[in-house]
Simulated scan of single mutants.
Amino acid sequence: MNPTIYDVSRLSGVSIATVSRAFSNPERVREDTRRKVFEAAEVLHYSPNAIARAMARQRTDKIAFLICKEGATILDEFYAGICTGIMRETNRSDFELVISTAADWDTASNTSKNKQVEGVILGGNARPDMIAELQNRDLAVVLVNNRIQGLDIPCVVSDEYGGVRQALEHLIGRGHRNIAMLAGRFSPYILGERYRAFLEVTQAHGLPADTRHIKLCDPTVESAAEACLELLSRQDRPTAIFGGNDVMAAGAMKAALRLGLRVPEDLAVTGLDDSSACGMLEPELTSVHIDCRRMGELSVARLQALLAGETDVPQVTVVPTELRVRGSS
Rank of each mutant, 00 (worst) to 15 (best):
3 P>H: 06
4 T>D: 14
4 T>E: 13
6 Y>R: 12
7 D>S: 04
8 V>F: 12
12 S>M: 15
13 G>F: 11
13 G>M: 11
14 V>N: 11
23 F>G: 02
25 N>V: 02
33 T>A: 02
34 R>Q: 12
37 V>P: 04
42 E>A: 15
45 H>S: 15
49 N>E: 01
50 A>F: 10
51 I>C: 08
51 I>F: 15
55 M>G: 03
55 M>C: 03
57 R>F: 01
60 T>G: 07
61 D>T: 07
64 A>H: 14
64 A>L: 13
64 A>V: 15
65 F>Y: 14
67 I>K: 07
68 C>Q: 04
70 E>M: 07
73 T>H: 00
78 F>K: 07
78 F>C: 07
80 A>R: 08
83 C>F: 09
83 C>W: 03
87 M>E: 13
90 T>M: 01
92 R>F: 02
98 V>E: 06
101 T>I: 02
102 A>C: 08
105 W>D: 00
111 T>M: 09
112 S>C: 13
113 K>F: 15
114 N>H: 06
117 V>Y: 07
119 G>V: 11
119 G>L: 07
119 G>P: 05
120 V>H: 10
120 V>S: 08
124 G>T: 07
125 N>V: 10
126 A>K: 00
132 A>P: 00
132 A>M: 01
138 D>P: 00
139 L>C: 02
140 A>I: 03
142 V>Q: 13
142 V>P: 11
145 N>R: 05
145 N>T: 13
145 N>C: 07
147 R>G: 00
152 D>T: 09
158 S>K: 03
159 D>W: 03
160 E>C: 09
160 E>I: 02
162 G>E: 11
164 V>F: 01
167 A>I: 12
172 I>A: 06
173 G>L: 06
180 A>R: 13
181 M>Q: 14
182 L>Y: 02
183 A>Q: 15
184 G>S: 04
187 S>R: 01
187 S>A: 07
188 P>I: 06
189 Y>V: 00
191 L>E: 11
191 L>F: 05
192 G>F: 10
192 G>P: 09
195 Y>Q: 12
198 F>T: 04
198 F>V: 05
199 L>T: 10
199 L>S: 04
200 E>I: 03
204 A>K: 12
208 P>R: 06
210 D>P: 05
211 T>K: 15
214 I>S: 03
216 L>G: 01
216 L>H: 02
220 T>W: 03
224 A>Y: 08
227 A>K: 02
229 L>H: 08
232 L>G: 09
235 Q>T: 13
235 Q>R: 15
237 R>Q: 11
241 I>R: 01
241 I>S: 06
244 G>N: 10
246 D>L: 03
254 K>H: 10
254 K>F: 06
256 A>F: 13
256 A>C: 09
261 L>F: 13
262 R>I: 11
264 P>N: 09
271 G>V: 06
271 G>D: 06
276 S>T: 15
276 S>D: 14
276 S>K: 12
277 A>G: 00
278 C>Y: 08
282 E>D: 09
286 T>E: 11
289 H>N: 04
290 I>K: 09
294 R>H: 05
295 M>T: 04
297 E>V: 04
300 V>T: 09
301 A>S: 09
302 R>P: 04
303 L>I: 10
304 Q>M: 11
307 L>Y: 05
308 A>P: 05
308 A>Y: 02
309 G>S: 08
309 G>W: 12
311 T>I: 06
311 T>K: 15
315 Q>N: 01
319 V>C: 12
320 P>W: 01
320 P>Q: 02
326 R>A: 04
328 S>W: 11
